[in-house]
Design a binder for these strands. Structure first.
Length: 604
RNA sequence: GGGGUGUUAGUUAAGUCGGUUAUAACGCCGGCCUGUCACGCCGGAGGCCAGGGGUUCGAGUCCCCUACACCCCGCCA
């Protein structure tokens, strides 16, 4: 009898066969997805990455094959040979292969399976902890198979797009010199250089700029990056970037290239036509209306910045407001329409929610007929003029509810930004994945070059020190650094930053002034970035670029709820791998070779 | 570093006011069944209630600590 694999080769996948194949002799390989044993007939759903096919074993056809089929259990790996037969009146409309079944004449069990810790089903309730511990089983499930297949497709399309557009796919080192500032680096001790460490690259930033200086003009790379920061739903310690850099370009040229890629991805993967050009919004407007630089534009609910009004009215008899604006704080409000009314209990829950983000409380006012405020501790004391001014600024109607935050700008912005999204979710304002009209791409542009760092007491680069300031603002570098805006841009989709980049600073003279404004001495600059500063002096072309978060793109494309669902082998929130138990202990001998000693002492 | 939620058979959950033998579904094991596709029917096994400490005559249930997982703030140029 001929043998499977060596002699009997697979003819089809388990998602392929249809009524067009009736009568064919086929060979399928796969996993037992489900079994229904009726005694004289055994039905097996055979699964591979392409789909599921029903295989039937009948007692009166091949008794010994039927007997073996009766022993099959879930997740056994088998090969079968048989004939494609119509299901007649028993069509299964939910299966792509539901018109047919394969009547098996041969069966080989390649491997049995112990009962799996959880069942391999499309919809699974099992704790993510268990799924991660047995990730290879989790990955057998159709939704994750589909996601990773999409991911492979995005890789392929991206590579083709850039290569066809004249970009060169060039590599950069992962093991690099540590440079301070920015994300925390993973460090790799150097055995050959006692006491020295490599850093794992948090991005190819400096190397891609050096490629431009070396004359490679248009570069891209689909590249892994490493950051030793705390994890989030949309953040993993190693992640993949679509990294791009171009010479002789301005901001609009970068936008053109990236919009072209995104439009193609959405068309090819989802069949969706995304309109171009994407909306552009100044950083300032985004902060003012939405509280952050990655607004979700699928719903409105903008903030109203009341800082100016409150100042004009000297706090309007409300000591808390007065103190807030006089102490350098800001005041913001958000309007909830009358038909979005929340119960007292819900508002109390909201207050707990915002306190968790550092808010002192959640001031509110219900608008009565005639613009009076009720249900508010502010109602009694606030000057009527300020109250009216606020009503007008927020555009309230009777029955509306105003929610307020005031105080430290960063806290107010964070709280209000998260509150906006939180409320939109609760009010059902965000359309479900796949329901159409939900792809709100946005370029956030022209942010300030510096932000004031209260800890150190001087201006620091808001993003990185090699972003080009607007030419007309260069004059303020020394006198009013906060006024200098720059050619930095973020690509935002539905509340996620999916990319960010800038036009780079290629002029060494301006570069020196930027360092000076940041309080970095020539010596410091030389120590940290000497090689780049030297390079900029030797014929650096005007250049700029961007990096897109590949994982986040795939997450949004597939409707996944977590980055962990689009990364094949993700880490937990504490950065561990539950399957392999990384990170793990190492031998004392290894540490000695690396000139490393651990100071860790376990608790207790 | 801080705030919050959770942890009960292999899996997902229930478990009332603190009360005596901790339930169910799916999975697993045995048996029957030729048209099922969430197959069905009969029978069975399976528990250190995350770990530790405390309160109590008595703790899955109340309190404290620890561990792990998840969400958020800080952090992520």
């Amino acid at each position: 009898m001929p043998r499977f694999i060596t002699e009997i080769k697979r003819t089809n996948s388990c998602g392929q066969l249809t009524a067009n194949d009736l009568g064919k002799e086929v060979v399928l390989y796969g996993w037992v997805h489900n079994r229904r044993d009726h005694g004289g007939a055994v039905f097996i759903d055979l699964r591979d990455r392409d789909g599921v096919t029903q295989v039937v074993f009948e007692e009166d056809v091949r008794p010994e094959v039927h007997a073996l089929a009766g022993q099959l259990r879930l997740e056994w790996v088998v090969g079968i040979r048989g004939k494609v037969v119509s299901r007649g009146g028993n069509v299964n409309a939910r299966l792509k292969t539901g018109e047919i079944e394969v009547h098996a004449t041969e069966l080989e069990v390649f491997n049995r399976s112990e009962p799996t810790p959880f069942q391999i089903e499309d919809k699974l309730d099992t704790a993510e902890e268990k799924r991660l511990q047995y990730r290879y089983l989790d990955l057998r499930r159709a939704p994750l198979q589909k996601t990773l297949i999409t991911r492979a497709r995005v890789n392929h399309l991206t590579r083709n797009y850039f290569t066809d557009s004249g970009f060169l796919e060039l590599e950069t080192p992962f093991m690099v010199k540590y440079t301070p500032g920015g994300a925390r680096n993973f460090l790799v001790p150097s055995r050959l250089n006692p006491g020295k460490f490599y850093a794992l690259a948090e991005s190819p930033q400096l190397f891609k700029q050096l490629y431009m200086i070396a004359g490679f003009d248009r570069y891209f790379q689909i590249v892994r990056c490493f950051r030793d920061e705390d994890l989030r739903l949309d953040r993993q310690p190693e992640f993949t970037q679509i990294d791009v850099e171009m010479s002789f370009v301005e901001q609009n040229d970068v936008f053109d290239v990236i919009e072209g890629l995104v439009v193609r991805l959405w068309k090819e993967v989802l069949g969706v036509d995304v309109p171009r050009p994407f909306l552009r919004m100044p950083f300032e407007e985004s902060m003012s209306k939405y509280g952050n630089d990655k607004p979700d534009l699928r719903f409105e609910m903008p903030h109203t910045d009341l800082t100016g009004l409150v100042k004009e009215h000297g706090g309007g008899n409300v000591p808390m407001l007065k103190d807030a604006v006089e102490g350098g704080g800001i005041v913001k409000a958000m309007r909830l329409a009358a038909d979005q009314a929340l119960s007292r209990t819900e508002i109390d829950k909201l207050e707990e929610y915002v306190k968790g983000m550092g808010a002192k409380g959640l001031a509110r006012a219900k608008i009565a007929e005639g613009g009076e405020w009720t249900q508010s501790p502010l109602a009694k004391t606030i000057a009527p003029e300020l109250r009216q001014a606020i009503n007008a600024a927020c555009g309230v109607q009777p029955g509306d509810l105003l929610l307020f935050q005031f105080g430290k700008p960063s806290t107010v912005q964070t709280v209000m930004a998260n509150l906006r999204v939180h409320l939109a979710k609760r009010l059902g304002l965000i359309p479900e994945y796949g329901s159409g009209g939900q792809w709100r791409f946005l370029w956030v542009v022209n942010p300030p070059l510096f932000e004031f760092d209260e800890e150190s007491g001087h201006w620091a680069a808001a993003h990185h020190a090699f972003t080009r300031p607007h030419d007309e603002d260069v004059q303020y570098l020394e006198t009013d650094p906060g006024r200098v805006n720059c050619y930095r841009y973020d690509l935002v989709l539905n509340g996620f930053e999916i990319g960010g980049g800038s036009i780079r600073l290629h002029d060494p003279a301006v570069q020196a002034r930027v360092f000076k404004a940041m309080g970095i001495s020539d010596e410091d600059a030389r120590n940290k970035f000497g090689f780049l500063l030297d390079a900029l002096k030797m014929g650096a072309p005007p250049h700029g670029g961007i990096a897109l978060g590949m994982d986040r793109l795939v997450m949004l494309l597939t409707g996944a709820e977590s980055l962990r669902d689009v990364v094949a082998w993700p880490k937990t929130q504490k950065g561990t791998d539950l399957m392999t138990s990384a990170p793990g202990d190492v031998d004392a001998k290894q540490l000695k070779e690396l000139w490393v000693k651990s100071t860790y002492e376990p608790k207790g």
